[in-house]
């Protein structure tokens, strides 16, 4: 059983999910990601689109064991054992919750430097859903 995120709903913000495009408020210049219709800071309603670097630091995290993650991730949990989830403080300012990958859970710690990659999340209605995951920064 997966939570229903319709294809139009998913497709509507594909730029955010696959190209990590944020909004920059034309009034106060704050960067919002995920994009918003109304600025969190000043209430402004106009944003310029701006791509993010995808770089950031781990702000907090959890390792979800069997039964901890939503059921659409069961197939993955069967393969990998755990689902790694975190909130990343992005270099440009906003924070976002995302999956963490390519790292052993014992290596996770607050402040870890990360970078965004595009990975498969799960499939629904026969369509693969891709999105951002964060992996240790490779400089």
């Amino acid at each position: 059983m997966t939570s229903y995120i319709s294809l139009p709903m998913y497709a509507a913000n594909i730029d955010q999910r696959l190209r990590i495009i944020a909004g920059k408020c034309t009034n106060c210049s704050i960067i919002v990601y995920p994009q918003r219709l109304v600025c969190k800071c000043c209430g402004g309603k106009n944003f310029d689109l701006t791509p993010l670097s995808g770089l950031g630091e781990l702000y907090t995290f959890s390792v979800l064991h069997g039964g901890g993650a939503p059921s659409e991730f069961d197939y993955e949990q069967k393969m990998t054992g755990d689902v790694l989830c975190g909130i990343v403080d992005l270099f440009e300012g906003p924070r976002v919750m995302a999956r963490l990958a390519d790292i052993d859970s014992s290596q996770l710690k607050i402040g870890l430097k990360l970078e965004a990659v595009i990975r498969r999340l799960y499939d629904q209605e026969g369509i693969l859903r891709y999105g951002v995951k964060f992996v240790p920064e490779t400089l």
Binding site: M1, L64, G68, P70, S71, D74, M97
Partner: peptide, 25 residues
Amino acid sequence: ERNRLWLGISGDVEWERLAGTNFAG
């Protein structure tokens, strides 16, 4: 598994849920 569906529908589903978590996480 259906309970786990219903227990995770009250976050910001598009972003929190697709990040692989529900309220436990």
